[in-house]
């Protein structure tokens, strides 16, 4: 993994650049996003930073863009656009609208199907994404059969960010930050993070996105959901705080850890 700026610069690739990945003829190379194979040459097709994982010999290009291209298994935030006989039509920001079948919910029967209004916000997982087919969504975690945080997002505020930023938040996509009251064993004013899905504590401490950690340290209760399609839903006690949090996250895209901390500190003094 490149870490320093100089290393990253060395790994910047542009479309058409060949990738020097041939170590031996019998090794299997796994190509990730942004790479394509033309006969026996592997070339980049996007501008970004070339990444390589030694163990499984995976190569991919980490790039940034605005338009979402659906990929199976990714969690996205969509807007319900219409209702068909078999499910909802959901805008997920991709070229085509996705289908969210009425039966793709936890414990649903034909009688008790969900009733979202047009314009409702849903947090769902792409169960099918293929360039030749309309994408399909589900509001249930296939591993557990439970909703696990998928479903309608009520209230709050949605803003758009670049796909690169939404990916940097890691696989942890929906969680609440709140400050507990003094009861039981938890001492007062200790931060409790409730991760709705999937539980991956390390992500919040991800060095790439220190901003969430800084915000959590400010002890503001809020709930955030990040869709891989570059949509972020956020809610907190007051509209003022929500907007402040949204701006902070948007501004953090090109800031380093120190600058993030400084920005959060300034915003808190302004409040």
């Amino acid at each position: 993994m490149p870490s320093t700026a100089a290393q990253i610069m060395q790994n910047v690739v542009l479309p058409g650049d060949p990738i020097p990945s041939h170590t031996g003829d019998d090794t299997t190379i796994k190509l990730g996003p942004g790479l394509t194979q033309d006969q026996d040459v592997i070339t980049s097709m996007k501008a970004g930073v070339l990444n390589h994982l030694e163990g499984s010999n995976r190569w991919w290009v980490e790039s940034n863009q605005q338009r979402y291209i659906p990929a199976t298994g990714e969690s996205v935030i969509g807007i319900v656009c219409g209702r068909l006989t078999e499910g909802f039509k959901v805008d997920i920001g991709a070229a085509q609208q996705a289908l969210l079948p009425y039966l793709a919910f936890e414990g649903v029967t034909k009688k008790s199907r969900p009733n979202f209004l047009v314009g409702a916000l849903v947090y769902a997982r792409l169960s099918l994404a293929n360039k030749d087919m309309e994408p399909e969504l589900e509001c249930v975690n296939p591993a557990t059969g439970k909703a696990d945080g998928f479903g309608e997002l009520k209230g709050g505020f949605v803003f758009k960010c670049s796909l690169g930023l939404s990916r940097r938040f890691g696989p942890l996509l929906r969680y609440r930050v709140w400050v507990t009251s003094t009861n039981g064993c938890i001492p007062p004013n200790i931060l409790v993070l409730i991760f709705v899905r999937p539980f991956r504590n390390t992500s919040l401490m991800d060095e790439n996105t220190p901003i969430l950690r800084f915000l959590a340290e400010q002890q503001i209760p809020f709930e955030i959901t990040i869709g891989r399609n570059g949509r972020v839903w956020i809610t907190s006690g007051s509209a003022k705080t929500t907007i402040m949090l949204a701006n902070t996250l948007q501004n953090s895209e090109y800031l380093n850890e120190r600058e993030c901390r400084e920005m959060v500190r300034k915003l808190m003094t302004m409040q």
């Binding site: 070339t43 996007k46 501008a47 940034n64 863009q65 338009r67």
Partner: peptide, 11 residues
């Protein structure tokens, strides 16, 4: 096109 991340085979 680079900015939009549209896949290309060359510049």
């Amino acid at each position: 096109l680079l900015d939009a991340g549209i896949p290309m085979n060359a510049l």
